[in-house]
Amino acid sequence: MAVGYLVTVVLATLIVVFCVTCIHGPKPLFYFSYRLGLVFNEVPHLALYGLVLATALAFAEGDIATTADRVVVGLAVLPAAGLVVVLRRGMRTASVVVPALDEALGAGAGTRRRPPLARILLRPVFRRRRDVRRVRNLEYGDAGRRNLLDVYHHRARPEGGPVLIHFHGGHYDQGRKDTQSLPLLYRLASQGWVCISANYRLRPAFSHPDHLIDAKKVIAWAREHAKEYGADSDAAVFVSGSSAGGHMAAQAALTPNDPVYQPGFEEADTSVAGAIALNGFLAEYFDGDPATNPVNLVRADAPPFLIAHGDLDELVETANPKALVTALRAVSTSPVVYIELPGGHHAFDLFHSFRFEALIDGIEDFAAWVTAGERRVN
């Protein structure tokens, strides 16, 4: 029997299972399934390419020589079909994003666009763009490498762009600034935005409110320095985050200019125009402090929110972000866009996938609606 080919088919089958289900335990199985699902739920076509290539090589090298081998080839049709199903599920994301925007912001707020097929199908893991420059490791505080940020801006430095600040995830005890939501940062920067991705102090050495203070420092830094990279002097500043970073972004958006979280820079403007939370822990509190739960921070003058969450998130069940959505809609005068992504797992923002590209389209539409509203007010 062609053992190597059999292993490939078994692995492809496991990938499909991990993509279409939400596994919570036992821990060894969870971590194995989580890692495979994290990648291949977004780029299942890479696994499909590998399966097709392995099949072609097995035939070309004469490995398919017995009845058992031919049975394995027949069985390979099942994971191949499953990978196509996973791919098509991601391709339908726009059909969820656009209605969610229209419902929250008004008819016509969401627009359908043609996905960048070449980028998604051939270069999903390459996030960089030639027209975008990344300026690394700028200091915004005095905590060493945990107080460094990167700036992404268009090489031509067009003037008047808005600002997006992004905070990475990692449960507040791990992670770094150059890993998550890079397709979003590069896309917006290529269109004239100034995008910032920042490290922040982590547990256990630091705890709340240190993380939020760092977030406020980044916002203050952006208001002072983003114009050096092409942002408008009065640019709309959006704050975003993935997982724990989404939690921190929500906290920052709901505590504008609060001197408790701005020691030594109390006069800095840390308000934001909008908040974007991706697969976030949005109804959690940390370090035993209920004040860290964004649900407890909702206010009538909260900025507009866009919250996106996968319905198969292994780490954060949808009830968690929905709790913040409900609380905001009950109190805030600003709209709240909630997008539940069918088949979406945790950390869906790592690659150029059909799912994340459609969501980025929605984020652009959300930001356009917010900035247009600010222009009308001003």
Rank of each mutant, 00 (worst) to 15 (best):
M1K: 02
V3C: 04
G4D: 00
L6Y: 08
I15E: 03
V17Q: 03
V20A: 02
K27E: 15
P28N: 07
F30E: 06
R35D: 11
R35T: 10
G37N: 03
L38R: 08
V39Q: 06
V39M: 05
N41H: 09
P44G: 12
L48M: 12
A56S: 14
G62R: 09
A65N: 09
D69E: 02
V71T: 15
V73H: 07
A76C: 07
V77H: 02
L78G: 05
L83W: 00
V86D: 06
L87P: 00
R89N: 13
R89V: 09
M91W: 03
R92N: 08
S95R: 15
L101C: 09
D102M: 12
E103L: 13
A104P: 07
A109Q: 00
A118G: 11
R130E: 12
R134T: 14
N137Y: 01
D150S: 02
R157D: 05
E159A: 11
G160V: 09
V163G: 04
G169D: 11
Q174N: 12
L182E: 00
A189E: 08
S190I: 08
Q191D: 11
I196G: 03
L202R: 02
F206H: 09
D210T: 02
D214F: 04
K216A: 07
K217A: 02
I219P: 11
R223D: 06
H225A: 02
H225K: 14
K227V: 14
Y229C: 15
F238S: 05
A250P: 10
L254T: 11
N257V: 08
Y261K: 13
T270D: 10
A273R: 08
N279W: 07
Y285V: 08
F286K: 11
V298Y: 04
V298K: 06
D301F: 07
P303R: 07
P303W: 00
F305E: 00
H309W: 04
E314L: 14
L315V: 08
L315I: 08
T326R: 13
T326W: 04
A327P: 02
R329T: 03
I339H: 13
E340L: 12
L341M: 13
H345K: 15
L350W: 01
H352M: 04
E357S: 14
A358N: 08
I360L: 09
F366I: 11
T371D: 10
A372P: 13
E374H: 08
R376H: 03
V377I: 05
